[in-house]
């Protein structure tokens, strides 16, 4: 039998799943509800200067990269299964398309974090 390459993508899926389980709900609440509405946190928490400084700092770059990359690898892996489960004829080969999209998004994030300085 052929050895599956799934351990690579399952590890990434698992890492993203763990990260999103640990901080996902709070992160979405902060950036999507609390800050935009000025509820609990002031609106300028995500001002241009603050966020730019965060994205130019090494720890900040790593945090943004891991969140975007992890969520994409976790999410797109599950989306493949969701579509397969509702009956779309997506064989194992199609999984590469979904993992490829996740890799593409992660590379775009990496590129942006580099050009931001």
């Amino acid at each position: 039998m052929k050895r599956s390459n799934r351990p690579i993508f399952w590890s990434l899926f698992g890492a993203g799943g763990m990260l999103s389980a640990l901080v996902g709900p709070m992160l979405i609440f902060i950036t999507g509800i609390a800050v935009p509405l000025g509820f609990l946190l002031p609106r300028d928490t995500m001002s241009y200067e603050r966020v730019l400084a965060f994205a130019q700092n090494g720890f900040g770059k790593l945090a943004i990269f891991v969140v975007i990359g992890g969520f994409l690898f976790h999410g797109l892996h599950r989306i493949y299964h969701c579509l397969h489960e509702v009956g779309l004829p997506l064989g194992h080969g199609w999984m590469a398309v979904f993992h490829g999209l996740a890799a593409l998004g992660t590379l775009v994030a990496l590129y942006l974090l580099i050009v931001i300085g």
Binding site: S20, G24, I28, T31, G32, I64, V67, I68, F71, L72, H74, G75, L76, H77, R78, I79, C82, G105, V108, A109, L112
Partner: peptide, 12 residues
């Protein structure tokens, strides 16, 4: 996963 992926795209 659809929501999590969409959120990652919002951040991207």
């Amino acid at each position: 996963s659809f929501f999590l992926t969409a959120y990652a795209l919002v951040l991207l």
